[in-house]
Amino acid sequence: MDRPPVHTDEGELLDRARSGDGEAWRVLFERYREVAYRVARRVTGDDEDALDAVQDGFVRAYRNLGTFAGASSFKTWLMRIVYRRGIDIRRARPKARIVSMDQGEQTLAPNLPDTREGSDPAGPADRAELGERIARAMEQLPADQRRAFVLHAEGDMTYARIAEEQGVPIGTIMSRIFYARRKLREILADETEGPDGKTKEAEQ
């Protein structure tokens, strides 16, 4: 079935969505669902939790469209909502589930297969473990660094856009991303390498 032509002007789409136009809201959903998923996944460390955060994020964003003044872009505003939901969902997650992922248990939902060919030789369970390790390392970062880092790395936002969003100079954002990345690398390297510098995989 052919859909009517899509208006790409965001302001118009938002106005239409505010007045209850489902098609306009659907265009915005389809435009930002992927990037929202990447942002949520980086903070939750889990595919299904990330999808929950995206769904909640879109619902909350819609219900609060009236408060969105347009000072930032809609994408920036939406990413903040989804990011926040991701953090809350991770905090609320039972610790037992995180432990089970450490033990290599496959917890990915069966309806979310990895369909890439040859790009994931480690398999979904190992990938889930890496995602969880990164999310856990992320929790050790100062909040400002973590948010700047995630919005840049997964939200496809430039330094300038993040600086505008956070109301700080662009140099501050560079600094936050630099130190976030350095710290993440240290944490993950410490986890991967044994005391003598050998990787855990090599020791097994």
Partner: peptide
């Protein structure tokens, strides 16, 4: 190395129906 796996279109449609039911 931990790039997000693609979400099947069917799953997105499922999510849209849930979002739509609570919004527009």
């Amino acid at each position: 190395r931990d790039a997000a796996p693609p979400v099947p279109e069917k799953r997105w449609q499922q999510m849209w129906q849930a979002v739509d039911a609570q919004t527009t």
